[in-house]
Design a protein around this nucleic acid. Structure first.
Length: 271
DNA sequence: CGCCAGGCTTCTA
DNA sequence: TAGAAGCATGGC
């Protein structure tokens, strides 16, 4: 399946900006970049050359049903970048990684992976997520699906010990039990106003404002939701002491993504 | 080898 | 109600 004319999209910018943890960079050969990964229980090998993106071994149905939405290809990032780029600081952040798209990940996976992210490093988050999938996810072509909540609900700390998630293990189990029983219906929560939805998510032990915001932005499509971690806090203090311009509001979460990736790669900007 | 990590809970004043 | 300590584990 070949998509040509993919504008405002570059795989490394999108898959290596800290929003997802399961994609692996592969040797690209003649292409600009290549990755393999699993999302929505589906394996994908994808590579990009210029504005042409090749989804290997993928049917049109799988592309239309999964990957088009996952990579947020129906959103006009050109328009978003024009809006955000009218601000000089944001223009610099966008120029650093103009191919960022905020993925629409599975809500449950986004919630879990960002529970794991707390007080943690990205390389170690990736390791924990991979062990979690390998040990508790169902096998699919190319690896394992992300574990369903039912697979984690009721697990003892000892059962999860090999995942080596540390103190976060009990948080994962609590989230799994709430979702599996229907007490925490993620899709329905996603339809609520952002503040209300965030409060509902924070009922989970180990989910605070930041993790809730990540679940909403990366998993539930709340493009205006801004996860505030230490880096975004520093960036806002140094670069936007009055907060983002009002006009950013509907896509503030996307602005946050350009900014986060930029300041993480240029710490001196917020030192 | 210590430091500290895309935070949150718990304890203390 | 605010602020600090504690948390599991290991990249760097």
């Amino acid at each position: 399946m070949v998509v040509s004319g993919a504008l405002d999209f570059f795989l490394p910018d999108t898959l290596e900006n800290g929003q997802c943890f399961r994609w692996r960079r592969e040797p690209a050969g003649a292409a600009d970049a290549a990755y393999t990964g699993i999302a929505f229980g589906r394996y994908l090998a994808v590579e990009q050359t210029g504005s042409t993106v090749v989804f290997r071994d993928t049917t049109r149905d799988a592309f239309e049903g999964i990957w088009r939405g996952y990579f947020d290809l129906d959103r006009d990032y050109g328009a978003i970048k024009r809006l955000l780029g009218s601000d000089a600081t944001m223009a610099r952040a966008i120029a650093f990684a103009p191919g960022i798209r905020v993925l629409r990940q599975e809500p449950w996976e986004a919630l879990c992976t960002f529970i794991i992210s707390q007080n943690n490093h990205i390389p170690r988050i990736r390791g924990i997520v991979e062990r979690l999938c390998a040990q508790h996810g169902t096998p699919v072509r190319g690896g394992h699906a992300f574990p369903r909540p039912e697979a984690l609900a009721g697990l003892s700390p000892e059962a999860l010990a090999p995942v080596r998630a540390g103190f976060r293990a009990k948080y994962l189990v609590d989230a799994a039990e709430r979702v599996a029983t229907g007490a925490l219906p993620l899709e329905a929560i996603g339809a609520l106003p952002t503040e209300v939805a965030a409060r509902a998510l924070m009922a989970v032990h180990g989910v605070g404002p930041k993790v809730a915001a990540c679940a909403l932005l990366y998993g539930l499509g709340h493009a205006g939701c801004v996860p505030v971690d230490v880096w975004v806090k520093r960036a806002m203090a140094a670069l936007y002491p009055q907060g983002f311009p009002e006009a950013f509001a509907p896509v503030a979460g996307i602005a946050q993504q350009y900014l986060f990736h930029y300041v993480r790669s240029h710490p001196e900007v917020v030192a």
